[in-house]
Design a protein around this nucleic acid. Structure first.
Lengths: 218, 218
DNA sequence: TTGTTTTTAGAACATTTGTATTAAAAAGGA
DNA sequence: TCCTTTTTAATACAAATGTTCTAAAAACAA
């Protein structure tokens, strides 16, 4: 009998409109009216999907985190850690416009979560998930006996994680300087610096011209 | 003839009230009324020092950056780079409550600057200054022949700078995990990893009990 | 004390905010 | 076609916003 509308689809549409408003005008301008206008619907209509503004913002933040999680999940692995770790982190870092938009919006939510209790839990959860990646990274490196001896795992996890988020912030703030190439180079250099020399899958000093790895022709 | 009031002192008082409002309730709540109330003056009075809200926020942001600059300037150096570099970064990182308050406020301004043109220049300036510290760090390490050979300066500057800001973010977000001790340990480990082994002023594996360096009595 | 100027306080303004309410429009089953 | 329910749109309202304006208060010089 009733008009059938895909609720989840509408909510997603509104969430993405929220992202655009935040990116263009800041989270201070993320009012229900501005978001409704950006989404192309009326405020009364939007209220059928989000009964309060707080709900709307929480959902929009959650959608950002889900997009990141999805990207991590979709990453395909080769089995070679020295290649897979940069690939994975490439998916988390703002290495293209879409991911940079997400990152800008994410930082807006993160800062807001410092004074907004309703956003704090999600921030902590994402933080924990991201950090656990590095725990797994070191477990993997350790199991494959790639790591330099004598490293303090707890400290190294924090250090690698700090490199990631520091790069992310700098890429958002200074995209012209911290390009995708710079980010990947930093990640690879950091990874290399943690490992024993002469790891087979990674050449320590590649010649600057040829880019192809393992140039063994048949 | 007139009532004499120290303008700069009043402006500073208002700026600090702005910080407190931002830290307690978020930058969205940094309205002229809320700030005036926090500063203990009326909005009409505040208007004698800041004719617009934009001016007020710009000034408050500038004051934060000046506090950080001052701390950098005040740092006393021993002449031993392996000791001075951590000391310097200790002054930039949120290693106590006062600095953490500043950092939270700074991040609020930084995120706002993404969509507020009037704050962008200052953000870029501070970013340049902070980054230049690491250029100097590598110049210093290089001149003293402490660096490992074959390092790519441009990449290493970005990497060390990323460690700093990543730590700062994580300390603000998770102070219970990223404590001052963790931050300093990460910084020292990063510095050590860049340097040749057996640097005289830093012991690679200090015994866990004795903390005093160079225990030469008399 | 008197006079002059700055500082202060508070009210006033139009605009924007989140939320509530109301009625019209839409869509599918009878 | 008509009926039922959801979805949509528009208005209404109190509260908060940035800014302006006016007059009182304060402080120093005469």
């Amino acid at each position: 009998m009733p008009k059938i509308v895909d609720h989840e689809l509408q909510k997603a549409k509104v969430a993405e409109a929220t992202w655009r408003v935040i990116q263009k005008h800041g989270i201070e301008q993320a009012s229900v009216r501005n978001i409704a206008e950006e989404a192309g619907i009326s405020v009364g209509s939007m209220r059928h999907y989000f009964s309060t503004q707080s709900e709307l913002l929480s959902y929009s933040m959650k959608r950002v985190s889900e997009r990141v999680s999805q990207r991590i999940y979709d990453t395909v692995f080769s089995g070679d850690l020295m290649q897979d770790i940069p690939s994975l982190l490439h998916e988390v870092l703002p290495t293209d416009n879409e991911k940079r938009l997400e990152m800008e919006v994410w930082f807006s939510f993160v800062v807001k979560s410092l004074s907004d209790e309703s956003l704090r839990a999600l921030r902590h959860q994402v933080d924990d998930e991201l950090r656990s990646i590095f725990v797994q990274v070191f477990n993997g490196l350790s199991e494959n006996q790639l790591l330099l001896p004598g490293l303090d795992f707890a400290i190294e996890v924090e250090r690698f994680y700090a490199v990631l988020d520091g790069l992310a912030i700098h890429a958002v703030m200074r995209p012209e300087r911290v390009t995708p190439e710079v980010m990947i180079a930093v990640i690879k250099q950091h990874l290399l610096s943690l490992c024993q020399p002469n790891v087979p899958s990674m050449v320590k000093k590649p010649e600057s011209n040829a880019k192809k790895e393992q140039p063994r022709d048949t």
